[in-house]
């Protein structure tokens, strides 16, 4: 413990938190969570800072901050790579991706493929090429936290509803707060652009994220492992089934219209 936490008489002084501590969990909390240690940590001698060491003592505000910061960190290396690529080619990112996909899959008629590649090479209407390219890379980076927030919130609510089948007690706030730790291992997905290592890192990140998510759901709901895993898989299963049923329904309707 840092000596600045002590009064002159040797007693503990109240800890001064940084402005961002309301918006982020402590590093100790994140470390415990990614090690799947969700049981309450042993209290320090006086017990003043227990909330900053227990992984379960996270607020939704801190969870939200964790998801956003983790996504921005994960998106940083891809942002650098995208910036260098886009500025080098002098074209906004979406147009580069369109041209690359046209080339890679080669499914479009040759003339249309060529047309799309021509579009990718056109100069922006107003901005210099480098600025348009940079803005597109920044936009793609900002999309990282927005996409992660969508997954965290939407899948979190669906999982919480599934756990309610077995009478799990947590509130929406508590559930989303604790499951936000699953975003931390996903920072590794940011290594994606590195050849070979990136692929391995992405697989490790996803497996680790699933483990942290399952452990956090189990800790906050106090369900057994079987029910926890069923609750996590249930939303995905329901969405897949509904999508399959809808596809079948639409396909059969169109088949009837055609024949």
């Amino acid at each position: 413990m840092n000596s600045s936490f002590l009064h002159a008489d040797g007693t503990l002084a109240p800890q001064r938190h940084a402005w961002w501590s309301d918006w982020l969990p402590s590093l100790t909390q994140v470390q415990q969570a990614i090690q799947l240690r969700f049981e309450a940590a042993p209290a320090p001698s006086v017990g003043l800072y227990n909330d900053r060491t227990d992984a379960l003592a996270i607020t939704m505000r801190q969870g939200l901050g964790l998801v956003v910061v983790a996504a921005l960190l994960a998106g940083f290396i891809p942002f650098l790579v995208n910036s260098v690529t886009a500025i080098g080619l002098g074209t906004p990112l979406p147009l580069i991706k369109l041209a690359q996909q046209t080339q890679r899959f080669n499914v479009m008629p040759s003339q249309l493929g060529q047309s799309l590649q021509t579009v990718a090479g056109l100069a922006p209407a107003l901005f210099p090429r480098w600025l348009a390219a940079l803005l597109s890379a920044v936009g793609a980076w900002i999309n990282w936290p927005l996409n992660w927030l969508t997954w965290w919130l939407v899948y979190g609510v669906a999982t919480l509803l599934a756990t309610k089948i077995w009478g799990a007690p947590p509130t929406l706030q508590r559930f989303l707060a604790v499951t936000s730790y699953a975003a931390a291992p996903l920072i590794l997905t940011g290594l994606g652009p590195i050849p070979c290592l990136g692929f391995v890192a992405q697989i490790v990140a996803v497996v680790w994220m699933l483990a942290v998510y399952a452990a956090s759901v189990r800790a906050i709901t106090r369900l057994d492992w079987g029910h926890t895993i069923v609750a996590i898989l249930l939303p995905a299963a329901v969405v897949s089934l509904v999508a399959f049923a809808l596809t079948l329904a639409f396909a059969s309707t169109f088949m009837r219209m055609i024949f």
């Binding site: 003339q111 249309l112 021509t118 056109l122 100069a123 209407a125 107003l126 901005f127 803005l135 597109s136």
Partner: peptide, 27 residues
């Protein structure tokens, strides 16, 4: 407005896409 300023002019894009569209339409 910034998005429009970052993309190629709409008329130039239409002109570039036209040959491909004509080929697909014929196919």
């Amino acid at each position: 407005l910034l998005w429009t300023a970052s993309l190629p002019p709409a008329d130039a894009v239409r002109a570039a896409l036209l040959p491909g569209v004509q080929q697909v339409a014929a196919q």
